[in-house]
Amino acid sequence: MLNQLRTDFYRLSHTWGIYITFACTILYAAMIVINNVVGGIMVTGDSMAKLNSNDIWTLKNGLNAATLSSSLLVYLFIGIFVITIGYEFSQKTYKNTLVSGITRSQFIISKYLVMLINIFLLTLIYFITSIVSGLICNRSVGTSWSNLLSQTINNSIVIAFFISIVFGIAILVLLLTSSNVAGSIFIVVFPVIISVLNNIANWTWLKYIDFFSAAMKISLKLVTNGQLWNYVIVSFVVLLATIITSTIVIKNKEL
C-alpha cells in the first residue's frame, strides 16, 4: 500500500491540476485577508458582521475569516478527487493498479489517504497564507503566536478531515455509478443539499452529517465537548461505512 501512496504522489506531482489547485488556494486565502471579506456557503450574516465589525483585522481575525470561508475549499479541492481516483477510472488505469498486488481494500484506503494528506497540506497552506497575508498588511497578531499556530494546525486537521469524509463518500458514488462526473457532482451538491435541508427541515440529526458546518463549529470552538464527541463518532462511523461499502462494491464490480 505504501508503494501505491508513493505512486499517487508521484503522479500528482507531475500533474498541472495540483499546482493550479495550490495557486488557487493561496489566492483565495490572500484575497480573504487582504480585502477583509468572508465567503462561503455556510456563513451566516451574523458571523460575517461580527468579523466585519473590527475595522482592522488582526492575524487571528484573518484566521477566523479563513475558517469561516473554508466551506468553499471543497470546490477548490475537487481536482484532487478527480486526479487521485477519477483518472484511474476514466483512463482505466485501475487495470494496472489492481494487478500490482494490492487488495481492493488497500486500493480504497490508499486513495482516501492520498486525498486526506493532500487536503490537509493544502488546508494548512491556506491558513498559513492567511497569516502571511496579514503580516504583509502589517497587522497585529491578536493573540499569542503559539495560540495562533496551534489554532492553525488544529483547524487544518479538523477541516481537512471533514472535507475528506465527503471525498470518501464521493469514492463510493464514483464506484456505484462508474462516473467520474457523478462523483464530482456529488462533492459540489452535497454541502448545498445539506445546507438547504438544514434550513427547511427540522432534523436535529442532520447537523452531524453537515460536515462543513461541523468543521467550522469545531474550529471556532462553538461546540461543547460532549457535542464534539458526537460529531467525531458520527464522522468516523460514516467514513468507516463508506470505506467498507466501497470495498464491497469494487470487489463485486465488473471493472
Partner: peptide, 15 residues
C-alpha cells in the same frame, strides 16, 4: 497477481 502482467482490452496509461 503481482506475478502477472496484462493488457486487457486496451492498453491503459495516464494520458
Amino acid at each position: 497477481l503481482r506475478h502477472v502482467g496484462s493488457v486487457i482490452e486496451t492498453p491503459a496509461a495516464f494520458d
